[in-house]
Simulated scan of single mutants.
Amino acid sequence: MTPARPLSVPDPSSVPGSSGAVGGGVVAARPHTRASLATQLHDLGVRPGGVVLVHAGLRALGFVCGGPQAVALALRDVLGPEGTLVVPTHTSENSDPAGWSNPPVPADWWPVIRAETPGFDPAVTPSRFMGTLAETVRGWPGARRSDHPHVSFAALGPAAEEVVAGHPLADMLGPGSPLGRLYELDADVLLLGVDHGCNTSLHLAEYRQAAPPRQRVGAAVRTRDGGRDWAWWEDVAVDSADFPRLGADLEATGAVRIGPVGDGTGRLMRQRAAVDFAVDWLARNRRTEEEA
């Protein structure tokens, strides 16, 4: 079930071995490991001591000894003890059922869903459609998670609390959100086995448009006394439909480093460069499309 306006979400693959010895298809020369992935990530340009937001579809990486745990360890090896790993832990099904389209639900279900969906709890509510790496990092000892019922982020490392603290309800992916904090920290964005359609940071550029469209958003939230309630708020109506085209134009500028990670492709970019480019790109292209 998805909101009426699509967020950027990666392929929800959960088997990191589709091209390895157990997943069928072409068998790699040898299994990928924590060490081999770390070497590739270093060569791609992941910065030791930096902050990196990772979107991953692990199926594309092929067979990895240890699966998502090994991928997370490889990322932490390259980042080092001063680096911070960030992942999206969105819960898109915690949204107004009136906007669900994949699949829709009957209108007479809507009041029940709004009344009975458990309030978002960052400690226990699982992410959905974000992939196994995001869930692995979310549950890692010491990980911190933002308290947004719809588009939370989890982080692991020295800057984790700075990234996730105080995530505003009505600024889901805007300057006050973890995306805005990442921009301030001059973070990197790493796409592993996914393309720019999953690049959540590009939503920050939508908030920077002159007059972005807005929509009413709802979700189940926790109350101060430990109960639950249904909250409504107004927010920017985000839409990732044209992000693949935006990303292709961004890559044409040379701002994205592209290289192998496992059997798949990694794309690494400075978040500021991607967002700043997207602000201008959206202003030109979306306005042109609407006028057409």
Rank of each mutant, 00 (worst) to 15 (best):
L7P: 01
V9K: 09
V22A: 13
G24A: 10
G25A: 05
H32F: 14
S36I: 06
H42D: 14
D43K: 11
R47K: 11
P48V: 10
H55P: 02
A56E: 09
R59I: 00
G62I: 03
G62V: 08
F63A: 14
Q69E: 12
T91W: 00
S95R: 09
G99F: 10
V105T: 14
V112A: 15
I113C: 13
P118L: 01
P118G: 02
P122L: 09
M130Y: 06
M130G: 05
V137L: 12
P141D: 03
P149I: 07
V151L: 13
V151S: 12
F153K: 01
P158G: 11
A160H: 05
G166Y: 06
G174Q: 04
P175Y: 00
P175H: 10
G180F: 06
L182N: 13
G193W: 08
H203D: 06
R214S: 04
R214Q: 13
R216T: 14
R222F: 04
T223R: 12
R224G: 15
W230C: 03
W232T: 03
F243E: 00
R245W: 07
D249V: 03
E251L: 11
T253Q: 03
G254L: 07
V256C: 08
R257F: 03
R267C: 12
Q271I: 15
A273E: 15
V275T: 11
F277P: 00
R286C: 06
A292W: 12
